[in-house]
Nucleic acid binder design. Structure first.
Length: 151
DNA sequence: CCATCGATCGGCT
DNA sequence: GCCGATCGATGGT
């Protein structure tokens, strides 16, 4: 179960890796939505993102936490995810995909806040409420998904 | 070529 | 709360 995400939206978004246009690192962000974007952060942590935009529009959602592994660096370590997955499809054939198990969340269970660690983007972009956190109780959710998938 | 700086985390004060 | 680890991307000289 994904519990925390952040949105990064286009070259105009001064916190987005694509803010200075296409580079070797961020090229995957320009792919049609549905592929993973994985990069190394602070020389230590693998960050997992799902590319979400139309072709040539760099947008992605950073997966910042899952049940049992809070934090973007901890979740990739827990699931054994690294840059080998960069550019792969979000589907069983790549070994990592997302499933909708039909979980119904109470109204207000997802809170929007500013994104973390993007002060360098300036106040306008750093303050956008594009971080989404699931704050509901977790003890009534369905059993864990099949091996290789997250929700 | 060189310097700076991160979409973080864990350990220590 | 602070700081070091650790390294690739980025941009300037």
């Amino acid at each position: 179960m994904i519990t925390e995400v952040e949105a990064y939206d286009g070259e105009r978004d001064r916190a987005c890796h694509a803010r200075r246009g296409r580079t070797a690192r961020n090229a995957v962000m320009y792919e049609p939505g549905g592929v993973w974007y994985v990069y190394l952060c602070y020389g230590v942590h693998e960050m997992l993102n799902l590319v979400t935009g139309p072709p040539d529009y760099p947008a992605a959602v950073l997966i910042r936490g899952i049940e049992g592994a809070p934090g973007p660096g901890r979740l990739t370590k827990a699931l054994g995810i690294d840059r080998r997955l960069n550019g792969a499809v979000c589907a069983p054939e790549s070994g990592l995909w997302i499933e909708d198990r039909g979980v119904r969340l109470p109204r207000g269970a997802i809170k929007a806040t500013p994104r973390i660690g993007v002060d360098y983007a300036g106040p306008v972009w750093a303050k956008k409420p594009w971080r989404f956190v699931l704050e509901a109780r977790q003890d009534h959710w369905p059993a864990p998904a099949a091996r290789g998938s997250i929700e």
